[in-house]
Design a protein around this nucleic acid. Structure first.
Lengths: 208, 208
DNA sequence: CCTAGCTTGTGAATCAATTCACAAAGTCCT
DNA sequence: AGGACTTTGTGAATTGATTCACAAGCTAGG
C-alpha cells in the first residue's frame, strides 16, 4: 500500500469526529460536499482522501453515515482500546491523566510516571504515580502501547530513549523539543510554544 | 511579500529554540548542516527557509549564533510580549494558565474566563477567574491579543464567535473541533484526540 | 422502463514544497 | 598572496498534495 500522507490521516479524524457528533443524528447519508463544509476542505479532497482506502459511497446518494463511521474507525485503528502511560506528573501531565477526552475515545491511561521521589506515591483519580525506573518492569503487567511525554524540555530526549528501550512504539510528545528516536517508533508532537509563535508571526505580518 | 508556508514558520521556531538552548553556549557560529541535524531536516531546507527573509549567513563560515537568534526572534514577532487570555477554567485551562513555558517565552496570561458561576471568583496563581460575559468590557483594561480556548467541543464554536466579537485577532484552540472564524482571525488548533488517532493509525498500519 | 438529476471515483492538470547541485564568496593555513 | 577548503544562496528539477473536470453509476419520479 502506498504511503498515506499525514495530512490525509488528520482529515480522516476530522471527518470521523463530525460523523460521530450530534449534529449528524438522524440523517442516513451524507455527501462529500457536506463533509467538506464542516471539515474546512473541499469535496474533491474528501473523495480523494477516502479513495486511498476504498470506495465507500453510492453515486447519486452519498455516504451511509453508519457505514462510513465504522469504516473510518477501522482505518484509524479505533476498533480497539489503546493503553496509554503518562510520563511526567507535573501540571500538564496530571491534567492529561485526568482528561476525559482520552478515555472517551478509547485511549485508557493505565499508569503515570515521574522521576521525582516527592511525586511518586501520590494519587490522582485513583492512579498512583510510579517511579520512572519501574517502567520497564511494569510493561508486562500493564502492556501500555502509547507513551505521553509531559516532561521538561531538558529531560525529554533522555526520557524518550528510556521509553523506547522499555518497548513503546508510539510517543505523544508535549515537551518543546525535537525528539530523535528510531524509525520504528512513531512520534507526534504538540508544541505549545511553537503554536503561539506561529500566531505571533501571523499577528506581526498581518499586513503582508 | 510572498506568502510564507506554515511549515516554514514552524521550522523557524524550531531553529530558534535550538539556538537559544544551552547546547549552543559558546560557539560563535553554526552551519545550516548543524541546524538541520537538530531540527530534523536538511541543510538545503534550512537555507531555503532563511532565504525567504533575507541573507543571514557568511559563506565558508555559517551563521552567527547571536545574530541569527535575534533575526529569528524578529521575524517571528517575539521582540515584544504578547498578552494571552485563557478561556475555559477546566483542568486543561487551569494547567495552561499555570504553565511556565508560556510566560518564559513572552506570552503573558492576563486573564482567565469561564461561564460556570461556580468557577468564577476562584483564584489560581494570583489570578481570579472572571465570567465570560465580562470579557468584552475587560478588553480595554487588559488589552489581550491571543485567546486560548480550553472549552468543551460543544461550546467551542459559540465561544470562538464571542472571542472574535470581543476583538481578538488570534486564537489557540484546544477544543477538538474545527473552528469557523472570519479570515482576519488567525487560528491554530491543538487537537489531542487527533494526534492520538494519528498514532493509532500508524500503530495499526505498521506493516504497511 | 426511461429520463432527469445527483454524486461518486479518479485520471490529468495545477499548485506547492522539498531537494539537488553548483557558482559565488568567504575562511584558513602555509 | 595563493590555493585548498568550506558553506551559503538560489535557480532548476523533482517530488508531493490539491484541485479540476468528467465519465460512470445510482436514485427517484412518472
Amino acid at each position: 500500500m502506498k504511503r498515506i500522507a499525514d495530512s490525509t490521516v488528520r482529515r480522516l479524524s476530522v471527518y470521523l469526529r463530525f460523523l460521530e457528533g450530534s449534529s449528524q443524528r438522524g440523517l442516513p447519508t451524507i455527501s462529500s460536499e457536506e463533509l467538506a463544509a464542516h471539515g474546512g476542505t473541499t469535496s474533491a479532497q474528501v473523495r480523494k482522501d477516502l479513495s486511498f482506502f476504498g470506495s465507500f459511497g453510492k453515486r447519486g446518494l452519498g455516504y451511509s453515515v453508519p457505514e462510513l463511521t465504522s469504516s473510518l474507525r477501522d482505518i484509524l485503528g479505533l476498533g480497539r482500546a489503546w493503553k496509554v502511560a503518562i510520563v511526567g506528573a507535573g501540571k500538564i501531565g496530571i491534567a492529561l491523566a485526568q482528561y476525559d477526552g482520552f478515555r472517551s475515545r478509547g485511549f485508557h491511561v493505565v499508569a503515570v510516571y515521574d522521576s521525582d521521589e516527592r511525586k511518586v506515591g501520590t494519587r490522582w483519580d485513583g492512579m498512583t504515580v510510579r517511579h520512572l525506573s519501574s517502567m520497564a518492569a511494569d510493561m508486562a503487567e500493564y502492556e501500555p502501547e502509547i507513551a505521553v511525554l509531559a516532561v521538561p524540555a531538558e529531560a525529554a530526549q533522555e526520557v524518550a530513549m528510556g521509553v523506547v528501550d522499555a518497548g513503546f512504539k508510539a510517543i505523544l510528545n508535549f515537551a518543546p523539543t525535537q525528539l530523535h528516536v528510531p524509525p520504528e517508533v512513531s512520534v507526534r508532537s504538540v508544541n505549545l510554544a511553537l503554536e503561539l509563535e506561529g500566531l505571533s508571526y501571523e499577528l506581526s505580518n498581518r499586513s503582508r
